[in-house]
Design a protein around this nucleic acid. Structure first.
Lengths: 401, 401
DNA sequence: AGAAATAAGTCAACACAATTGACCTAATAA
DNA sequence: TTATTAGGTCAATTGTGTTGACTTATTTCT
């Protein structure tokens, strides 16, 4: 009678899926190449001129693309390049960090339009949620003041916070991140803002940012090594952000540094937390960023000694990432002060030899990405944009609607 | 004038892409669920009854599915379940190992129809290629003798060999694997057989096998830890095999076991190579498999001491894999003799705590997959089947045709 | 028994989106 | 001036999933 066992199957697709994909492919092509004519797009996407023409007409009507002046290039009718209209869409990003929260508004091409931050009250999520919702409201109002129709073109809210998610807390937790994990954040944000909300960990958010406006643009295989209070990896695999079965992929900070003996998590050694400890400064102090940056600029010996240690672990991490993910490049990004990040990059050479040593290599094995305390918030904001406009398998299928 | 810089864009799709995807979804659903009625398929794939009906009619005509007897279940018209026809498609798999080569023929559902192996001449690829082509010919003839029309239904040839690919050789290489890497294997096989050919490393092949007929069936996020002469990981990420930018993803054997001091590659400690060394036996001896299996069965002390050491490294590996990939499960598979594999699995407990410790867990964190010296060859054969019939993003796009 | 309800599956008309091939336009090269 | 080339449009066509009414076969209710 009742067949209990549910049927597992992938979703099918139909015309709308096809159409949605092709529209996304256009937007993606324009994002990566700046401005392209209809004929260019047809060649690049392998669609017919006519199809491209129809889609571009639609996108133009919707205000997502616009024609530039015709350009003559050689023989034949001049081409009319189209480019993305930044004001075509907006998204809001939210970063929840240990002692503060940041909100940011970006447009279709990743320009930051407005931003705001606030301290998180130390008494946990239920009070903190109010602060957050107010912060989002503020950014939303500012955005509305800056551009007309912003509300109509708001595609969603992206949130980022330290992971891992859905796992029992371990050890000390002065900033109540564990409490935040249990708090029904997404529901609160969704009902409080009326927007669609998704959650990423901070490394994933950084990778999303690097993919939209940073060093991972146009790359289908890249790993962002995020050095923040902890350390994590944001994974761009096969052209999409990879989150794993539970949204926890890339938690390299938990990787143990030796199989036998007394293994230490990478996080305990290579992270800003370890730097703060090494320098004996209070991570909650709002001045740490500037302080560390200046120490790095003047090559302070204590920073140098930390860098020497950390670089060994980072070399190991890069080698590990290359061995396991075989990416086109590894990008150092995240909340580390810029001067520190530069010192680290310099100190990384020479990289240990790995399968990434290839003759056909055109991109550096390891490079510096964004070093901006707002990178995570930016990535959080980039997520809804990416969800709405980037080509992806999921977007074609019926169950995505 | 000449705009040098090429335009980068993803491919668009059209009706044929839609259709191709939906057909694959049907086959996939039948593979995972055994037998389903048209109505079941419609519900599971979110397509309409009519669409499913049309596709099933086609598939039936093509001999890929067949109706079973109608079953009455509760009220309403009895349903007619359809199942895959094993003889609907065949593929040939080829394993090139250090001193021998294996060929195998499988059908649509992964049944092994015939197999053969041969020693690889020690004088390198150009002579070896002849041996291989003869071996494939033999398997192909045997297959043709076993089932009618097999040639018409042959979807391709999959090859598997130890990786990594495209990297300068390192260290000693008694079996000339480096020479094999340089040899134009794919071209030789393609012209020699007239079939489409793809290459995987052995860990990836194992994962492909586990996905078609093993422990990874129906899982979208699984990692196969392949313990063979070396050690590697086959990655099933987001429902597809992930190969990285250069086909080298999952090379966990190269992971270094400690950041500072004198780091050792995992491969030097946890691999059958290390076991052979520990036991002081010649890995080229064709009797090693049986020998090791018997030693494991009688709990030989030398085996036990190796296991104790190896298990520490394997625990570390599983923890690392869980931290970086966040899979639903980790599967131990590959060419290790079964008794040894069982001993290893037993000795793995307790696993180190990791982000994989979740309350909502239904599958074991770590489990035993296939322990069959033919697993790699089977996976190699599974690849063309998977390519031809599994749903995938690439299969929808125009540039896949 | 008979009627109602329920579920599987089919039929024929339809809608949607990409394709096709002819055609127009605007530029450069001969 | 004319031929050639490239961008782009027009209108008809094709392929594929959808829709809603209908048929068939079975169980459940009265």
């Amino acid at each position: 009678m009742n067949d209990a066992r549910p049927i597992r199957a992938k979703s099918g697709t139909n015309h709308e899926g096809t159409s949605a994909h092709n529209r996304r492919v256009m937007v993606d092509a324009l994002r990566m190449n700046g401005a392209l004519s209809r004929a260019d797009l047809a060649r690049a996407t392998k669609l017919t001129k006519q199809t491209v023409s129809n889609i571009i007409d639609e996108l133009e009507q919707e205000g997502l693309v616009t024609a530039q002046e015709a350009v003559r290039k050689g023989r034949g009718q001049p081409s009319t390049p189209y480019r993305l209209v930044p004001e075509g869409a907006f998204a809001i990003g939210l970063q929840i960090d240990r002692h503060l929260t940041r909100a940011i508004a970006v447009d279709l091409v990743g320009n930051v339009l407005t931003r705001a931050e606030a301290n998180l009250p130390p008494d946990g999520p239920s009070h903190g949620a109010t602060v957050i919702l107010e912060l989002i409201e503020k950014v939303r109002r500012d955005l509305a003041g800056l551009v007309a129709q912003s509300e109509r073109r708001l595609v969603g809210l992206g949130a980022a916070m330290p992971g891992p998610f859905g796992v029992e807390a371990t050890g000390d937790d002065p900033w109540m991140m564990a409490a935040w994990q249990k708090f029904p954040l997404l529901e609160t944000l969704a009902t409080g803002t009326g927007l669609g909300v998704r959650l990423q960990n901070d490394a994933a958010a950084c990778a999303t940012a690097e993919r939209m406006v940073g060093a991972a643009q146009g790359l289908d295989h890249a790993v962002c090594l995020y050095l923040g209070y902890g350390i994590g990896a944001g994974l761009i695999l096969g052209g999409e952000l990879y989150s794993g079965a539970n949204g926890n992929a890339g938690e390299i900070g938990m990787a143990l540094l030796s199989a036998s003996g007394s293994p230490t998590p990478l996080e305990h050694r290579a992270s800003l937390a370890s730097l703060y400890q090494h320098l004996a400064i209070d991570p909650a102090d709002p001045g740490v960023y500037v302080m560390v940056n200046e120490l790095a600029l003047k090559d302070d010996v204590r920073i140098q000694s930390w860098i020497e240690e950390a670089v060994m672990d980072l070399r190991w991490s890069v080698h590990l990432i290359e061995s396991l993910f075989d990416p086109q490049t590894v990008i150092l990004c995240g909340g580390a002060p810029e001067a520190l990040a530069r010192r680290l990059i310099e100190a990384m050479h020479p990289l240990p030899s790995s399968i990434a040593d290839r003759r056909d290599r055109t991109i550096p094995r390891f490079q510096l990405g964004m070093t901006d305390p707002w990178a995570v918030a930016l990535g959080a904001a980039a997520e809804p944009i990416s969800r709405a406009f980037d080509p992806s398998f999921a977007a074609i299928l019926k169950d995505s609607l």
